[in-house]
Write a protein that binds this DNA or RNA. Sequence first.
DNA 1: AAAAATAAATGATAATTGTCATATTTAGAA
DNA 2: TTCTAAATATGACAATTATCATTTATTTTT
Lengths: 228, 228
Amino acid sequence: MSNCSHCIMKRFNALKTLTHDELERFSDHKTSLIIKKGENLMTEGNSINGLYCIQDGKCKLTKLNTNGKEQIIKFVKGGDILGHRSILSEEPVGLNATALEDMRVCFIPKGDILESIKDNPQFSLNLIKNISLQLSHANTAISQMAQKPVKDRLAETLLSLEEIFGVDNEDCIDVILTREEIANTIGTATESAIRLLSNLKKDGVIDLLGKKIKILNKNALKNISEGY
Amino acid sequence: MSNCSHCIMKRFNALKTLTHDELERFSDHKTSLIIKKGENLMTEGNSINGLYCIQDGKCKLTKLNTNGKEQIIKFVKGGDILGHRSILSEEPVGLNATALEDMRVCFIPKGDILESIKDNPQFSLNLIKNISLQLSHANTAISQMAQKPVKDRLAETLLSLEEIFGVDNEDCIDVILTREEIANTIGTATESAIRLLSNLKKDGVIDLLGKKIKILNKNALKNISEGY
DNA sequence: AAAAATAAATGATAATTGTCATATTTAGAA
DNA sequence: TTCTAAATATGACAATTATCATTTATTTTT
């Protein structure tokens, strides 16, 4: 089994402030697991007794609305951590984490996390900063959902997907989403999302290659996202 | 000047876990201030060097959109605290806090807060829980903004306003908001908010007495908020 | 108290977005 | 591969929501 001390993933998240001893303790107790595409890593309302550290693969964080519709709140990728909010607040998980592709994940038991929180103030502070940043993003999202038309939100989402996942060797945004998932991200009907994507393609702002999306004119998208 | 040890407001927030000595330290360094209706307690993008503890009065937390529209993110009242997110994350304030009526507020310098965070793990944990809860609410808000029609969001907002502020001696929701502020909460045009309020009154679900709103049929509102 | 400014209300109309129907394409299973 | 199911795409239309214009009511100022 791999060793947390040598894992490069911790460079990208709050775990980077842990001492060698703490990482060794994590290594001894952690379990590695494979989550298949479509499977849930966490489920809304369930309790969780540890922290997930994503090695590889992507997932979506979603919320099921009272009307049965799925809302995508956030995308998560290798290097990110999941479950710390629930551990810290001692509350059930608030979102579903569903794999968009096969994932490799490490699970570190709650006890070890709590011990490091107690002993290592810098670690707790990093977790807090992570949650604070999420809150800041969430507030921006509320504002945009409430005030911007669907077209602007789609443009914004495409830019943010490229920001998060980067591009592949053909300059396409490096994540595979269904049109329905795109619609559930921006909060609109699937048909509306499809139509607006087609329009953006017609205008030469993006290119559509199957499910792959390539941004051709980032400035134009930025303008659209701001209502011009 | 009043003494934090005897202040009943701390019962309602994270300050309740502070020791007598900590509260005495707060008392020695705190300043009390009056914020007039319409004035800003905090301003988006500014830095803040302390924590506000609301003694009395109500304010709105808002965000200015790229299109110049104001989005109300949250309402705050006596007993709530403000500014802890910014202190913990060491980032500028993310929202404007604007007084809806005259407010009495205590300001506790950052240094004292950080000292208590270091010495009193239960205090830090309570601050984290507060931020976590806000994140949880924000995620729910994203989902509702994205997926629910304006009418449902208005019903939801009226219920939540009564939940937050309670009712006065005439059973009206105990906060004065302009129609524009209601519109900026649910994310719609002022005229649309006015029209939908009129409809709810016509249907006997609420009563409108000037700016005061009285909920007549809570179940009906709940049903509307869920799309029925 | 009167005048002026602001807020609320409402109608008319336009723009946006959702729903339903259906065709076409793509992906997965036998 | 071939069949089948699912996803994508598009048109037609309906519902929702925004914008503009105007009137009425309420607040604020003088």
